[in-house]
Amino acid sequence: MGRSRVHLWFIGPAIILMMGLLILPVFVAAVLSFTDYNLGNPSFNWIGVENYDRLVSRSTYKKMFTASLTYVLLVVPISVALGLGAALLIASLRIGGELYKAVFFLPVMATLLAMAIVWEFALHPIVGVVNDILRSGCDVGWLHALLSGSWLGGDPLQSWYGHACAEDFPLWLGDKNYALGTIAFIGIWQGFGFNMVLYLAGLTSVPRELYQAAHMDGADSAWERFRLVTWPMLGPTNVFVVTISSIRSFQVFDTVEALTRGGPSKSTYVMVYAMFEKGVKQNLLGIGSAITIVFLGFVLILTLIQVYFVNRRVHYA
């Protein structure tokens, strides 16, 4: 066997698998999105853009886009901010930093589906600890005054907490006004430790001399140091963290499938769950494929935005 051919044995399997398992499925989805195909039916009809038409006109799919986008807009900013905040605090600690780092990273490692089930118990409206803790605060005079705002002279019933004390605390996952926020909370709980670790890595690459230089220039407060040195130097990390968080949160599925199944009244009907429900459970592969293609489009746009920001930075650096 000559050396000239041997590379084919090395790259061959990878190329075949890439073509068959990554490129081909995209084409399959693209083609099927123009049909009414379903498994068990030997033939199918070309129905043009009808599936896409449904995606933009039916209220179910409007709710789907709203749920997905709201989820992303809730999870990304909060989990990025918490990740950055935790990283800055931990990096500036004298002792104990490693311990907090391990604790905050724990949810990233733990099986999300399992932890989602635990959160469901914790958030149970009647026996769950979350409402139990909140309720116990109602009987403590000063705490109730503080949280309901009545210490400022406001009407306690007007505030969220005071009102909840009088009526009852939310059903969380069972209430259409709270369900998506609750799912997003679990997403933030799970993901911010990952962002924290990326930011900690980014912080170690900020040259010490820059802080000294800033000090010479009279930037003494922590905020000035952050604004003038840390934040600009974290530019590439920011782009990376935001893109990864967005792509990851677009893919939310486990918590939705296990806890709400898209409900109540489609308030948590996110795209990947819709893809699963339409395509796999209801065997509506045409519409499922159309959702797949739109979803891939979103991911592509996010990646292109990332590439744009990374390149722009290189230009000005």
Binding site: A14, L22, P25, V26, L39, F276, G279
Partner: peptide, 27 residues
């Protein structure tokens, strides 16, 4: 070209193409 293909494939999240993969495996 092969390296370009690898970079391109990095863009495709496998969870996003789960449905066509499922159809192919079912077939």
């Amino acid at each position: 070209v092969v390296f370009g293909l690898v970079i391109f494939c990095l863009l495709i999240p496998v969870h996003a193409i789960a449905l066509p993969l499922y159809i192919m495996l079912a077939k």
